[in-house]
Design a protein around this nucleic acid. Sequence first.
DNA 1: GTATGTGAAACGATTCACAGCT
DNA 2: AGCTGTGAATCGTTTCACATAC
Lengths: 213, 213
Amino acid sequence: MTNVDVPPTTIQRLPIYLRCLMQAQAMRMPVINSLGIAEMAGTNAAQVRKDLSYLGELGTRGIGYDVDSLIAHILKWLGLTEVRRSAIVGYGRLGSSLQSYPGFEDRGFVMVAILDADPEKVGQRVGDIVVDPIGDLERIVAEKNVEIILLTVPAEVAQAVADQAVSAGVKAILNFAPVRLDVPSDVAVRHADLSVDLQVLSFHLNKTRTTDS
Amino acid sequence: MTNVDVPPTTIQRLPIYLRCLMQAQAMRMPVINSLGIAEMAGTNAAQVRKDLSYLGELGTRGIGYDVDSLIAHILKWLGLTEVRRSAIVGYGRLGSSLQSYPGFEDRGFVMVAILDADPEKVGQRVGDIVVDPIGDLERIVAEKNVEIILLTVPAEVAQAVADQAVSAGVKAILNFAPVRLDVPSDVAVRHADLSVDLQVLSFHLNKTRTTDS
DNA sequence: GTATGTGAAACGATTCACAGCT
DNA sequence: AGCTGTGAATCGTTTCACATAC
């Protein structure tokens, strides 16, 4: 059914549009036009129209986009109408902070397991989840039908842990470890790599200083 | 001095190359070629050569790149030879997990302040830093010469806090709040937005399921 | 009149392929 | 012979501009 010819750059912007639309909805706006979305999202109207046109003809010429129905369409396209069973693998400081991240439990993503290598942490209760040993990863993934893992283990073991997760059937990984993961092409990986962002910022600090002369 | 015509996509890859080179250095490799870097980084040799060629003629034909000197060049280009004074603004779970993130204190980035709105947290000691009230943001930024802030405050106040930081002289922001920040063009912003990544992963989960038929 | 949807143009990034250096 | 550096070709993305629909 779903046409798969949506450019990757468009896909990355859909969650942002979605957020803007939810805001518009909260402000009781029944309709919004491409310029309105663009201003909220920090792009331009042409970009918004091109992006949305990949999902179909969702707007009304002369009027704009119906907020409610556009939200519904984007949710559908992003697969956010289904529950996504996820697990945190590596329950250190970062891992534990992810639980309480806003927009997690409250939108489709459900945390069904937490795993850690540290015997001290195993058995610990976190809400209604009990921390499991990382050695049980494959069993837990299979049993609890985990689709996404949030990988917050040390860089040295990230690849090995990812391999286990993949062999147990995980199809999406959000990787916080500063290493490139090697996975089969049917597994999606996103890198949430803080140090890369910091270094890019460092570059910009340099640039502004050298340009100011 | 520094030529500013490096494509943004290249800049984003430089930190990754840097990491690979450090690994090569740790393995006592004196020289590496573009294919070697590419395999470690998950790209192709042509890409690596194009990227590095923007920084100058750093390799030797017939041989490859000297690991030590290439590392030095990339560090220089990314401005990582200078100390980057940074502050955490918003000391919740996420904020506190950032301190201990590997590759922070140990590479140029120095945490000089932590701020929070919660009176309970203000005054708390964190290593050799005392948590300051967020109302003192402008004073602290000016006094401690903060260049980068890690913004981990709730979305509702992120823009207001960013505005204060910018007016006090901050030139780079790593924004963890799920909102688009409006800042002057000389201020660099990077979005570390977990929920966008999760939603992109959700899209891919959908796709593989629908394509498998 | 107003705003979408979309071919076409412009731009930017990646890949190719080879000349040039060691 | 081996590998870099780089123009040229290719590919993908963004922007333009307007026909189309309300």
